[in-house]
Design a protein around this nucleic acid. Sequence first.
RNA 1: GCGGCUGUAGCUCAGUGGAUAGAGCAUCUGUCUUCGGAACAGAGGGUCGGGAGUUCGAAUCUCUCCAGCCGUACCA
Length: 566
Amino acid sequence: MVEIRDIRTHLSNLVAEAVEEAVRTGDLPDVAIPGPGIERPKDVSNGDYASTLPLRLARAALMPPLDVARAIVKHLPADGTLDPVEIAPPGFLNFRLAASYLQAQVDAVVSRGGSYADLTLGTGKKAQVEFVSANPTGPLHVGNGRGAAIGDSLASALAAAGYEVEREYYVNDAGTQTDTFGDTLYARYQQIFGREAPIPDDGYPGEYMAELAEEIARLHGEDYLRPEGEAAPADMSALGIELMVKKIGETAERFGVHYDEWFSERSLYEGEKPYETAMGILRANGQLAEREGALWFSSSELGEAKDNVVVRSDGRPTYYASDIAYHYDKFVRRGFGLVIDVWGADHHGHVSRVKTATRAVGGDADNLHILLYQLVTLKRGGEIVRLSKRSGDFITLDELIDEVGKDAARMFFLLRSPGSQMEFDIDLAVKQSSENPVFYVQYAHARLASILQRASEQGVTPEGGDVGRLTAPHELALIREMLRLPEAIEQVATTFEPQHLPHYAMTLATAFHVFNDAFKQAGDSSMKVITEDAELTRARLRLVQAAKIALARVLELMGVDAPERM
RNA sequence: GCGGCUGUAGCUCAGUGGAUAGAGCAUCUGUCUUCGGAACAGAGGGUCGGGAGUUCGAAUCUCUCCAGCCGUACCA
């Protein structure tokens, strides 16, 4: 039997065969044939799948689209997965899955269980998703939450699509901002011991810096105190960053995100020194030039708007140099076949440069996808709050999780496409928490669980249910909806747009609620899932079980809990 | 100035060049003696920012204008 995840390919093949046969018999002229283009009609009354091939073929074939359609249908091979194919004006081919096929899929989903909707499109390929990677100079804020939700779900979807996926956080522990961070931290540290130590002008005024200093004082007492007037000890910054990275990791875990790798920027300059190797490649290719006391990457020769500095005149590498080495490391040293960088949109000016550099050091830039998400503007009390660690005025991701919960927050971020600017009204988010779509979906899952539980208490289980008994329209509609999951995953894994997951989850939840309500509205207890007819009950429980599997899977991909009860 | 993203219902947002542009929230009207009312059905609500073009067909592609955000560092 054709698996649901292969159904579109199957339909494409059928149409291609029919066209070939139609040409052979002379029912269609021998012209260039575009792909069958199997798509999803918006309106289910137009079938489960459709092809517009007749419309697109009509001109070249010099035939009316409907005649083209008839010629194709005439030669379509008989196929058990489909009802008879319909022709609809002005020239659509409409395909409808046969009830027997739909019913059989219920068993197929149940036997697949938690691996239902696994795909093979990424099998054998290593993928890396790098996301959040916020400077470890402060706690994660609400905007980072958006990157976390997007990156983590994307990684999950890629894993479901067959990729071997690593989640990575790039720790910027080498830049100039870490110095400023260290200076600020030392100022706060000195304040604890009663010194008049002002926070540097370009430092970090946030209260969290004082808390961090207190933590260091708690752990190390006065060990880091230097004579008054002296600069901060060299390792103050590193210590602070270590503690901050730990906090960030804890926040990520609370948000349901687990990183496989915390990649230190500094490590690029140590050990195997990927930085030296990457720069060596550029130098060997004659793409480095010294000018005005600095070292420049001749990127303009590679199509960039201008050359860029990689080593400052004071001898320190720029962040761009680190990024070149970092992407060399990702592609060449570690050998990822697919690399996704999830960045805030304020870095978009950097996209082209990094791709060019990746190519220049031998990386496969075509498989480097830089996913930009627009920044979150935060509104509180009707006023816009700037999200900046520098200003010290922001809402942390921890606070957001405390107030609206991990599940609601993740769903909220995922629902919006990464490219859309979003306004996060913190007051509204708290107030709306009980109306958040996440509860609608979770409730559907809890109801599914509850039905199975109730039946089990009455001694009825789904085992052995005859899916052939599932013939009611709302039963078939629910089956159709749960069969869309592989398609949703494929869409996310190929377009890198995770918002399709929550939208699918909501549609599936609706299909279940409608299914469930249809029994209630009938006002006849014999029409409920659990009926006097034990065989029919078993069949319906089988569907409930399958739907629960599909819903749990999509919730898992979104990093949202699938509760058995609420 | 140049470049990128965005502009779709009152609000927040979906929408792979195809059929009557959708969802949630909000508003209004109903359903079911709740296998779990955080449910379901229905209604109202749109010049898809404006204009031009390509196409058998455009919210979707091209051009242009308008508006918002961002970028255009030897910051990251």
